[in-house]
């Protein structure tokens, strides 16, 4: 049957529990490259179980692409469990460090801006301030836009991490 499922391209968050072994990250990253999947971000960290790590992957694509991403991830032997958060309610957070130019005359304005966003000033230099900001993607984007007029010197983001909210049918799917 001709493929009727077009689907819209959008961001999907996929969480993968993987064995904490050398080469797993290379395997996952290599698979994404080899299959021409488009990754927006990839965050990796330890879990409460020292044998396991968790990868949170944000991919851009339509439903069909995300289905393939999920299946191809599941195929990797060291990937133990996959959750696809598409269509689920999630708590998703990014952490960012951003350095903004700090001319003396703008000093109070910029510090007030940080406070308004509940961002934390973590370091201050003579002409620059480093601000830590964690939150959902939209807020991060909004904060970046708010900083832009002052001149962003440098910024770094962890990539999204996410968990499903409790009050819904669970979206977890083991392979």
């Amino acid at each position: 049957m001709a493929d009727t499922r077009k689907g819209r391209k959008m961001k999907h968050i996929i969480s993968a529990l993987v064995q904490n072994k050398p080469g797993v990250l290379a395997h996952v990253a290599g698979m994404f490259a080899a299959r021409a999947f488009n990754i927006d971000s990839l965050a990796v960290g330890r879990t409460d179980d020292p044998q396991m790590s968790r990868m949170t992957i944000v991919v851009i694509g339509d439903d069909k692409v995300v289905e393939q991403v999920r299946k191809q991830l599941a195929k990797i032997v060291d990937v133990v469990k996959i959750q696809d958060f598409s269509g689920k309610e999630v708590i998703a957070r990014d952490l960012m460090l951003i350095c903004v130019h700090l001319p003396p005359e703008k000093r109070s304005e910029i510090l007030a801006l940080a406070e308004l966003f509940k961002a934390e000033v973590v370091d201050i230099g003579q002409k620059v301030v480093m601000i830590e900001f964690a939150g959902p993607e939209e807020k991060i984007e909004a904060f970046i836009e708010a900083c832009r007029p002052y001149g962003i010197k440098n910024m770094v983001r962890t990539g999204t991490i996410a968990m499903a909210k409790f009050n819904q049918a669970n979206g977890s799917e083991s392979q």
Binding site: M1, A2, D3, T4, R5, Q68, K71, Q72, Q175
Partner: peptide
């Protein structure tokens, strides 16, 4: 050409590899 492959058919796809299913042609 995938778009015009078996244009009138419903597709049953039996495979041991889930990632083969609906990769090129979506299975009904």
């Amino acid at each position: 050409k995938v778009k015009t492959f078996a244009p009138h058919a419903k597709i049953i796809h039996i495979d041991v590899d889930p990632s083969s299913i609906s990769k090129n042609i979506s299975a009904d």
